[in-house]
């Protein structure tokens, strides 16, 4: 048994080596680490690849990792030897942790190109370039829930028997982590107490987004933690207008997805070119219906039905603050919900 396995590995390794040698001889290769759904056949990556390769005389390779947490873990494990040139898909809750590994983006006037909510300060990050963004929100079915809470405070104060929600675990899911930051932004030191008040309404806390969204679609919960763009998906792709999100007066915590080039990239010029390319209309137009997020750049046309009401206020914490406190906040979150 063993020799067979061994030779299988050897064969696989050999095949891999010749494959990468072949690439090296032809065109320069730009390797982009991203998350799975971005790199997938139906994600934005294939279209971006085609468009970019027309311009750059290079080969663009997207490597889809299991999640944005996976990207972060991968570049930390690989350290200085990472074959990646660009990481794409971290959000602003993770940027500070990865900052030491990335170089300045060098893209001109990022702030001027962006279309972030007006209440936010201008984009000043010199390392990370946003390519899309969205708001976290509680999504509901207007056929079954006629009067959704109008604010986080109202949600927390709702009698337990009236509302059941599904959220995600802050330790394993981006929206879950986002909700934790949302309450932290709104309530600061009181966040733990607010979580305890919210807890009885939480039907369950799933590992990832898809499990809770499945629970919601099957009617097991009244509201699910998701994005304001989830109802947009149902409207645009499925013609279903009865899904909506509960608009909260305090504002919605945001997820800004960013890309950056690694310090040790062997293709810095290509990488820079790619980062700038992300904000061009060509790429931005792909985003809404492939990644189901708001495009980051101004004046990007949205498909019919994507946006049916004005955007809510955005909330965003400083990434350095998040990096500094995330362990304590997670502990507070777990403690509050374990009681």
């Amino acid at each position: 048994m063993r020799p067979i396995l061994k030779s299988t590995i050897m064969l696989m390794l050999a095949g891999q080596m010749t494959a990468s040698l072949a690439h090296a001889e032809s065109k320069p290769e730009l390797i982009v680490y991203t998350y799975d759904s971005f790199a997938a056949e139906w994600g934005p990556a294939p279209q971006i690849k085609t468009a970019f390769e027309k311009k750059c005389d290079c080969q663009l390779t997207f490597v889809g990792l299991d999640s944005s947490l996976g990207i972060l873990a991968r570049i930390r494990l690989e350290g200085d030897n990472s074959p990646a040139d660009v990481i794409l898909g971290l959000d602003t809750a993770q940027t500070d942790i990865a900052r030491d590994a990335v170089a300045r983006h060098g893209v001109d006037d990022v702030a001027g190109k962006l279309d972030l909510p007006v209440n936010l300060p201008a984009w000043q990050d010199l390392h990370f370039v946003p390519y899309d963004w969205g708001y976290f929100a509680f999504v509901y079915d207007s056929n079954t829930l006629t009067a959704p809470p109008a604010s986080m405070a109202e949600l927390i104060a709702t009698p337990t028997t009236d509302l059941r929600i599904a959220i995600q675990d802050a330790r394993s899911s981006t929206p879950g982590f986002g909700l934790m930051l949302w309450l932290k932004t709104l309530y600061g030191a009181e966040a733990g107490a607010q979580w305890r008040a919210l807890a009885p309404k939480i039907a369950t806390i799933t590992k990832g987004w898809s499990e809770s969204y499945d629970l919601f679609l099957n009617g097991e919960v009244d509201m699910v933690l998701s994005y304001t763009t989830s109802p947009a998906y149902h409207r645009v792709a499925e013609d279903k207008t009865h899904y909506d999100y509960a608009r909260f007066d305090e504002g919605h915590y945001m997820q800004v997805e960013v890309a950056a080039m690694l310090k040790n990239s062997d293709q810095p010029e290509l990488a820079r070119q790619f980062l700038a390319f992300l904000l061009t209309p060509e790429v931005q137009a792909i985003i809404p219906t492939s990644n189901w997020m708001y495009p980051a750049a101004k004046n990007t046309p949205l498909p019919d039905g994507f946006e049916v009401s004005a955007k809510p206020q955005g909330l965003l914490l400083d990434d350095a603050l998040i990096a500094e406190h995330q362990q304590d906040w997670l502990k507070e979150w777990v403690t509050a919900l374990s009681q």
Partner: peptide, 8 residues
């Protein structure tokens, strides 16, 4: 996690 109904 999915069926546990919380962190207990």
């Amino acid at each position: 996690l999915m069926l546990g109904g919380g962190l207990r």
